[in-house]
């Protein structure tokens, strides 16, 4: 199976794992978890340097999922990569769990930073990238921002900082899924042209189909060079991508998942995985 197909299958597995976690507790942040499954697949399946046996290895590449509510997708990815047992996904949000709704670096092996109050991950990621540079590591820090999250002023303080301090080891991945809790971003709080904004802030910027592994592979590969400019990749995504029934629902930020939906959706995704494997 070639790498692209393998990563597409991995993305579908991440979706299943996220659904698994959310279904076990009954409901959760489905839409924004699904929209970043493909970029997580390429990051953890190809681009990032890490060691599940040594999750705090200082020279690893780091991920800050600043839209911390997408935790289920991150947890699914980490479980599939062996940071902790897959079965633990079903403990999400249960009393005493290692998997809280929003990412917590002190609870989950492989989670590099605590996030949840939107915007804060952006500054934290800048500090982490700066720290790596001061230590002389060639690691990269990947920062996943939500488009709704970019309403927060702190995001723009952090972007200005990244450019001012020439953090070429920082890669900002903006999940432009066009929806936030109250509806379409264009209606709730339109932010304009993200590419133009990132460029104006001094970022090396591209826009790609963020739900297309084949587009993500080269876009992420080119961020390996540590130059003068931080990188921004605007991920043109669909909130709820991978499960049409979710994607079609405008208000899909947080949803209940019934047993019937769980069976049907995971069966569809398993078919998808099989197809990637067969065609290979």
């Amino acid at each position: 199976m070639d790498e692209s197909r393998k990563l597409k299958a991995f993305a579908a597995e991440i979706r299943i794992a996220a659904i698994e976690a959310i279904h076990a507790i009954g409901s959760g942040h489905v839409g924004g978890a699904l929209s970043i499954a493909d970029v997580l697949a390429v990051l953890y399946g190809r681009e990032m340097r890490y060691d599940p046996q040594n999750p705090k290895w200082p020279e690893r590449d780091k991920l800050v999922c600043s839209k911390g509510h997408a935790g289920p997708a991150v947890y699914g990815t980490l479980a599939l990569k062996g940071f902790f047992p897959y079965e633990e996904l079903k403990t999400m949000n249960r009393p005493g769990t290692h998997l809280p709704s929003h990412c917590d670096r002190n609870k989950t092996p492989g989670v590099d930073m605590t996030t949840g109050s939107l915007g804060q991950g952006s500054s934290l990621a800048c500090g982490m990238a700066l720290g790596d540079r001061l230590r002389g590591y060639d690691s990269r820090t990947f920062l996943i921002l939500g488009d709704g999250e970019s309403n927060e002023g702190q995001v723009w303080e952090a972007l200005a900082f990244a450019a001012a301090k020439k953090l070429g080891n920082l890669v900002v991945l903006l999940d432009w899924n066009k929806r936030q809790l109250d509806g379409w971003t264009k209606d709730v709080y339109p932010m304009g042209d993200y590419v133009a904004k990132f460029e104006a802030f001094g970022f090396d910027t591209v826009k790609v189909d963020g739900n297309d592994v084949d587009a993500l592979i080269p876009a992420l590969e080119r961020t390996r060079a540590d130059g003068e400019k931080p990188y921004a990749i605007v991920l043109d995504t669909v909130k709820g991508a991978g499960i049409p029934e979710v994607a079609e629902k405008t208000m899909n930020h947080s949803l209940p998942i019934s047993d019937e939906q769980y069976e049907r959706w995971t069966a569809q995704l398993r078919e998808e995985i099989k197809a990637w494997e067969v065609e290979a």
Binding site: P58, S123, L124, C126, G127, A129, A160, F161
Partner: peptide, 23 residues
């Protein structure tokens, strides 16, 4: 010594990111 400009919220976040890296 890092001058973070007049952006205190970001400064605290950057400091915390540095702390996570052992600074």
């Amino acid at each position: 010594a890092i001058n973070c400009g007049i952006a205190e919220a970001n400064m605290i976040g950057v400091a915390c990111g540095l702390a996570s890296a052992g600074f």
